[in-house]
Design a protein around this nucleic acid. Structure first.
Lengths: 337, 337
DNA sequence: CTGAAAGCGCTAACAT
DNA sequence: ATGTTAGCGCTTTCAG
């Protein structure tokens, strides 16, 4: 069979023999126990490097009930996952933190998951914990996973509970500041294109917009769902252009949607920012790719990923990290407002 | 400890007891052996679903020497991986094929891999096989991995050997056709911006360009390395504009590089395609995002991913797939030529 | 500080 | 067709 490849399978037994000690001692060295004499330590280390020994993960995991693997679960389809630079930053952050540990990352892009493979995988004991990003109201399988292993959420979980761990950015505040900037810029008819309203990030950014509009006593204009995609943003902008009340500014809840909106505006001969100002959110790479470059809200996604990994690692190490971390956003002024 | 979460750890033993059979029979059912009586089958299946049994992966893997996991190894940094839509298509394709199997995917973006974690992971017996995409000359750790588990390459491997399995697209032919199209369009001073020349895809596309130039007896103009990134493409185009021999067309070996090149051209007031025609490669989503939309070479990346997964799965199942699959490209005419 | 012994949960001959 | 018996390679008490 093709799988019968020569496995470089040096066992702990052989290392023990080569070092003249017992399996237990080798195990202690491998796992960094202090209770080993300098001589034994030295002998074992030499044997390990000479034989090129790598412990078998399955055996280790079976005996210790630990896998040193964590799952990143993204309830989206692959298109959305790879199309949105936000995820790239998150994964990079997680990866950066993990690469300094001995944990590995297993990726599950799980929107189209017929047999609930993800849940089975977790229930089979294949990972020690999970990070969940892009959580929707409808993603109930996450609850099952959370009852099996520790979970850290990227963004406030859909049904927040006291014992949930999550790392979020201050979406309400970011959206509020962005809308206020539009208003202080002299705009009085401010519409918004929201993210999906079954996601906390979508809900919170809408909230921030409304807070600002209300505080200034302005009318709430078109509120359109743009689905966090460029195509959705374009559709939403088309609907806005067709409505009676044309806005003089639009707070768009993601840069990707703003790109779609911008394309529609350009095609319709509407000048940005002269006729309509556009405010984005994310400060993703697309912000500087579009014309004009987007004024937007910077969110620290890389740090968010890093922090999520740190929280989960702390949890797995038996430490007690803070349940909630909220990272600050920052307004980035470019040319679309 | 935080890891002491209640594991839904139903064991095969409990299932056997509940079904009134032995462990072996349960194992047979779980592994789809035919040698089980209808009554036993039925009893076991009921016990499994009542107890909500999921086999422990580590135990299974330890006993069977199979993990039902495969690694996707990408020797690039995360930025490049997520920035290039090519990878998104590849992963989607692999994922699509795998989701119809009981294999899971472990992702390794391994350019910045100080302790050679990827190799250790493979040597620890954590995966049954690997898919390697974006293979560079310098990536020697791949050879070590290939000596441990079956590997399928995306694209012709750096040092091709008879027994290598890979799925490639016809890069030489695609580049040839693209360059010929430029020439038949009346262009006579055709330059090229290449991909990295330590990668077969970069080498082969340059070859196709040269074949066409030679066949038509035209001069070979600037050959610039653009590194398969937008920034690299921009730099390369700047160098081309500064050279004495200004081309009237450029074959750019990837759409992402073409985007960078286009931006430089626009900034320099050079009209596309009037002054200089631009031909891309990939037909990635960016091809239709830029202005003007790119005339380019379509490569079937999703199918490439699917096919790689199929080949690896066949290999792991002890079948004998073809070693080499070459997928055809297709010219897509838009407005940049 | 170290070794012996007992599993971890499962598969895979080998009997029956 | 089914059960019994050995392990798979490692960790982890428990003695000493």
């Amino acid at each position: 069979m093709a799988t019968d490849v020569i496995r470089a399978s040096v066992t702990i037994e052989e290392v023990a023999a080569a070092a003249g000690v017992s399996r237990s001692t080798v195990s202690r060295v491998v796992n960094g126990s202090t209770a080993v004499s300098p001589e034994a330590l030295e002998a074992v280390q030499r044997a390990i490097s000479e034989l090129n020994y790598v412990p078998n993960r399955a055996a280790r995991s079976l005996a210790s009930h630990k896998t040193h693997a964590i799952a990143l679960i993204v309830p989206e389809d692959t298109t959305r996952f790879f199309g949105d630079p936000f995820f790239a930053a998150i994964v990079s952050g997680i990866n950066a933190r993990l690469s300094k540990s001995d944990y590995v990352l297993n990726l599950f892009i799980a929107s189209d998951d017929p047999g609930d493979k993800t849940t089975s995988y977790v229930r089979s004991g294949a990972v020690d914990g999970a990070i969940v990003v892009s959580h929707h109201t409808s993603d109930t399988f996450i609850d099952r996973i959370a009852s099996i292993v520790p979970v850290v959420y990227g963004g406030r979980p859909v049904r927040e509970r006291d014992r949930d761990y999550y790392v979020d950015i201050d979406n309400v505040r970011g959206a509020f500041d962005a809308t206020v900037y539009l208003i202080e810029n002299g705009r009085r008819r401010v519409a918004t294109i929201t993210g999906p309203l079954d996601m906390p990030a979508g809900i919170d950014r809408l909230q921030g917009y409304r807070d600002a509009i209300t505080a200034w006593g302005l009318p709430e204009l078109a509120v359109e769902d743009g689905d966090f995609t460029a195509a959705g943003g374009a559709d939403a902008m088309r609907r806005i252009l067709q409505s009676d009340e044309r806005p003089d500014a639009v707070f768009v809840a993601s840069d990707l949607m703003a790109r779609g909106a911008l394309a529609v505006l350009t095609a319709a001969g509407v000048r940005v920012p002269d006729d309509i100002a556009i405010m984005g959110f994310d400060d993703s790479p697309v912000a500087t790719t579009v014309v004009p470059p987007l004024t937007t809200v910077r969110q620290p996604s890389f740090q968010q990923g890093e922090r999520m990994a740190t929280v989960l690692l702390d949890l797995l190490a038996g430490r007690h990290p803070r349940h909630v971390t909220i990272l600050e956003t920052e307004l980035v002024i470019r040319e679309s407002v």
